[in-house]
Amino acid sequence: MSSSGASDGRTSAASGSLVIPGDKISSDTSDRLGHGVMKLNGEMIATKLGYVVVKAGEISITPIHTAYFPRPGDLVIAYIEGMRSNIWFIDLNAPFNAILPMSLAPMKIDYGGTRDAMNVGTTILCRVQEVDEAHSSVVTMKGMGLRKVNSGFVDTIPPHLVSTISSGTNAIINQLKDASNCRIILGANGRIWVDGEPEGIRLVRNALAFVRDNEHSTDLAGAFTGHLANGNGE
């Protein structure tokens, strides 16, 4: 039985091009495999929908959509989802929840006193301490700056934009801090805590909406600078 119809459409993808799962990126398998790329039948193919990035001998895909997978050391902004007598369950904006044991809480509490210390819905700044092979993670609030958050508001950006908006000499996050005069903490899980005057907070909200709407643009930092100069769309 013939199986005619195998696509010849696997053409090599140039850096910056949009690829879908199955698209051939390169026949040259000497390059290192980055995120979203795998070797199949002697070719490098994309496994995710996104843009090809070729950098320093490594081929990877910047995906259109990512989920946040915690890594040890990540500073995250999280919510308390539930508790038991000696443990809190934490929403990290990740596919899997984390736990915060009583021993790693910032305050001394008695067994059974978790609800009085931090109730459901509380926003916290914490750090990922460990992640096991089943993606279950443990967070800690013992450390500099780790605390309950009692003021301000929390917004969210796609996790893959975290490094984009925090890197570079004219990083978006620094521009935002200067323009809004607000305290801003960017979590590795894509959540951003903002605290300050109402005008500053409004500026930050509008700016983050612009970032989300233009996340796939070539020069996001440049576009953001222009957007701020134009009055942030107000």
């Binding site: 039985m1 013939s2 199986s3 005619s4 119809g5 195998a6 696509s7 459409g9 140039a14 910056g16 091009s17 949009l18 879908i20 929908l49 843009y51 259109i64 796939h216 643009s217 070539t218």
Partner: peptide, 28 residues
Amino acid sequence: AWDYNMEAALKIHVIMKEAIANKYGGGQ
């Protein structure tokens, strides 16, 4: 019927790629 399906699958794949490119742009 097999050949028809294989040929149609390639055409539909092109339509899928076009729809994705329309949504997310053809490239950076």
